[in-house]
Amino acid sequence: MSPASSRAGGKSAARLAVKDLQHKYGDRPVIEGLTFTLAAGQAIALVGPNGAGKTTVLKCIVGSAEPAAGKILLDGLPIDERVEVVRRDVATLLDDLDFFPDLTAAEHLDLLARAHGNAAPEDLVDTILDDIGLLPAADQLPGSLSSGQRRRLALATALVRPRKLMVLDEPEARLDTDGVRWLSDRLVAEKKSGTSILFASHDPALVEAVADSVVTLTPLP
């Protein structure tokens, strides 16, 4: 990515700071010298064509890929998913989601809320399922959910837990028009509550509605 192509917010008290990030697949560089900062309550959208490295940037940030060089700081400290605080504060939605085949949609969210310290999450889970339009499917096992419902359940995972930073890869994927509108409203609400959002998207309307800044990635030769 050419550094000149990014126009991102740069407050001093950055929640997330990415400095000179580089990543390679073998010898081929995918990302070079990417720098941006994301403040609390702000959203940055990563845009660009397929193969530009959007998902790779997100993977580096959540620790699923190892950068070749550069720094990624969360609240001033190097981000490392092995650290408990990072796992508590960063809600992610990448393509690594899978389900336990024998737990229902509601039980999955229940489990996640409990794992984050909510000892009685039933009401919260029901509210979120209702909010996301999955209440009728609450008792369904993952195998019987449609791909759109699975996607909504995946989005719900980011809402049922505490979060300071949300890292979302194409959150609008497989959602219908109403769903994308709902998503847009939710992300704006998240920003207002102080959550920072970094998301990759191919939807200009969503980017326009949610993002305070845009980082444009272009495929490297």
């Binding site: 979120i128 909010d131 909504r152 109403d178 409203d185 939710r186």
Partner: peptide, 11 residues
């Protein structure tokens, strides 16, 4: 999908 739900995190 509702847009009124309490999505916002309550510590």
């Amino acid at each position: 999908m509702s847009s009124e739900g309490p999505v916002v995190f309550d510590p």
